[in-house]
């Protein structure tokens, strides 16, 4: 689906969401009940650099400063962080973290945040956007990629075919929406044949500031240990430790 189709589907009552030539998405859409949803995001597979992160964070802070509980939708189609020496020199890590922190602040202050990936998403830009929301969903065709297989093959010295075979037995490393669903990163995959506005309402209802992604990952058998290990740390730290069964 194109961004225009998605926006029409999400907001049949209207929206003023705009995309800059650099792929920066900002604006708001109208829900059925007349209330607003703030919309930010990255479009056209654009990379996210120091300049691109600022207007997105600014918009999130504007929503938080207004008070209330306006939800924030983050639309994601980005190839990843901008790979540029000058952006790194200026501290790109701070700019990306700042955007994530603003979204997390919004969540703490009562704004439900939803990430919707409809294209690409990768690495640092993924952490700054979709992975910093309360609930992250995907549309079929989305291609979340933490690490692409050819690069992995180069670094691990394992043949590409071996990696492709391995990817069939575990969701832990290979790209793909299904894999991230199993890991607990993607909460659910939307059905493009059904009305998107209804699915957004449903997702907003389920969104919560409590991070249960590791629990989802355990239930879906993508991450067998994360939730258990985190709990065990808390138990030992508070003096209630029993030994965690080694996997």
């Amino acid at each position: 689906m194109t961004l225009d189709e998605i926006l029409k589907g999400l907001f049949p009552s209207g929206h003023d969401v705009k995309t800059s030539p650099e792929g920066v998405i900002t604006g708001a859409g109208k829900r059925k009940n007349g209330a607003a949803v703030a919309v930010i995001g990255v479009a056209n597979g654009a990379p996210l650099g120091t300049a691109g992160g600022l207007p997105l964070a600014e918009e999130v802070l504007r929503v938080v400063a207004q008070g209330g509980d306006t939800p924030i939708l983050v639309l994601v189609d980005t190839q990843g962080q901008l790979m540029a020496r000058r952006d790194e020199m200026r501290g790109l890590n701070e700019y990306l973290a700042h955007l994530a922190k603003c979204l997390l602040l919004a969540s703490q202050q009562g704004h439900r945040t939803v990430g919707l990936e409809y294209g690409k998403a990768a690495a640092g830009a993924f952490l700054a956007t979709a992975l910093a929301t309360d609930r992250f969903v995907g549309l079929p065709g989305a291609e979340p990629t933490v690490m692409d297989l050819p690069s992995m093959s180069r670094v691990t010295k394992l043949p590409l075919d071996t990696l492709k075979q391995l990817a069939k037995t575990t969701p832990v490393f290979a790209p793909g929406l299904d894999h991230l669903l199993q890991m607990g990163a993607v909460a659910e995959i939307w059905d493009p044949a059904k009305p998107l506005d209804e699915q957004l309402e449903e997702t907003l209802k389920k969104a919560s500031p409590v991070d249960n992604r590791d629990e989802m990952g355990a239930e879906r058998k993508g991450r067998p240990m994360a939730a258990r290990v985190a709990k065990q740390v808390i138990a030992e730290a508070t003096g209630r430790g029993d030994h965690v069964a080694a996997a």
Binding site: L127, A132, T156, V172, F173, D211, G217
Partner: peptide
């Protein structure tokens, strides 16, 4: 790399836990 998806999520969870 060998646990790329789990590692990326761990970072996301850590960033949220730091903020909280």
């Amino acid at each position: 790399l060998q646990e790329a998806n789990a590692g990326e999520l761990a970072v996301a969870e850590l960033m949220r836990a730091i903020v909280e």
